[in-house]
Every structure is written in structure tokens, then in C-alpha cells.
Design a protein around this nucleic acid. Structure first.
Lengths: 93, 93
DNA sequence: CCACTAAGAGACTCTTAGCCG
DNA sequence: CGGCTAAGAGTCTCTTAGTGG
């Protein structure tokens, strides 16, 4: 049971380890696309958000959906998805 | 039918639009992790490689597999995967 | 509290010029 | 040809200081 808090930009940054005095502008620069976080910060932000890093880079909504969901499946369900893909590709690839 | 060429680091960079005189060191800096490409270059490299940008950020091999495959499926097969995920989540979420 | 911005110090990348198998 | 590296000019981010809802 994952819990979903509502975070401000600033609080998200603080939770990811940014100095509280700098978290607000820094997070805002990320959200508005003015600057981008380095790989370590990207990783930490994703951990706080509970999504894989790849999720941030999904331009397509369906792909984003798949990435976010797959990461939280148990092993058995992951294997189910993977074997379905195998099957589709063996028929059409 | 996707074709899979074998590219040198340099040639991949050239195909993505980097000046040929700088492509070799620049691509090598990306591959060794010394520097990272800006978002435009990341996009171009992924277009040349035929993978979604998200693929580069998959730390987990299974997730990488899903991302690379899903992006190349037709709409019907994408919907098949998506509805399977819906079903799994409605049972266990 | 919230979201957001400007500007400068400091950190980063890209280019040039190379080495080595 | 291939992969790879150092170093400096130029570019970008992070912090500080601040605005306004």
C-alpha cells in the first residue's frame, strides 16, 4: 500500500536532500525546465516520488504508464508482462 | 523490419549531428560517463539508436527490455499490454 | 505558506590536440 | 581505422536575494 502525499516543490527538494534554504528556487528551476538536476539529484527525486528515473524521460503517456506500473509490480507479474512481450515479438518481429 | 548496424562511437555521434572533428572524444565522454549530453543531443542519439529516451535511464534490465519493446509495438499490441497492467493493478493495487 | 525570477560564483561540457592497440 | 584522455574556453547550474499571490 503506497501512500501518496501532496508535496510542495520545496518540500520535495528537501526530502531529496537539498539544503532547505535553496530548495524552493532550485526545484522551481527544474520544474520550469530552466535548469536540470544532475544524475544523483535526479535519482533522489525519483526515489522520493516512487518512480523509476526512466519515468521522467517518457515523452509518451502510455510508455510513462507502463514504466511507472511495471516498476511496482511483483516478480511474478513482471514475468507475465515480459513473456507477453516475448510472445508478441516472436509473432510479429 | 528494423535494421541493426554496428556503429563506432564516432559514427553514432556524426549520425546524431555532432561535428565529425569532435564526435570521437565527445561520444567517448558520454560512454565513459565523464560528461553527459544535453537534452537535444540525448534525443538525437536515441533517434539514431531507435530507442526511446527513457531507455537510457532504465537501471533495471527488465524495465529496459519493456521500454525498448513497447515503443516499437503497434497500437493494438500496446493496448494489450496496457490492459494487462490495468487488470493486474485492479486485482492487487 | 505558495510559486517563481535575476544574477553572479562556481561547476560543468565541448573542442582541440593528442596517445595507444 | 578503433577507443580513449587532458586541459582550457565557453556554457550551464546552484545559491542568494528578492517579488508577488
Amino acid at each position: 500500500m503506497r501512500e501518496k502525499r501532496k508535496l510542495s516543490q520545496k518540500q520535495l527538494g528537501i526530502d531529496a536532500g537539498i539544503d532547505p534554504s535553496a530548495a524552493s528556487p532550485r526545484m522551481n528551476q527544474y520544474e520550469t525546465g530552466k535548469h536540470r538536476p544532475d544524475p544523483n539529484m535526479t535519482e533522489r527525486l525519483c526515489q522520493v516520488l516512487g518512480v523509476p528515473v526512466a519515468y521522467l524521460y517518457c515523452e509518451d503517456d502510455d510508455l510513462a504508464r507502463v514504466v511507472a506500473s511495471f516498476a511496482n509490480l511483483n516478480d511474478k507479474d513482471k514475468r507475465k508482462i515480459l513473456s507477453m512481450i516475448d510472445q508478441i515479438e516472436s509473432l510479429e518481429g
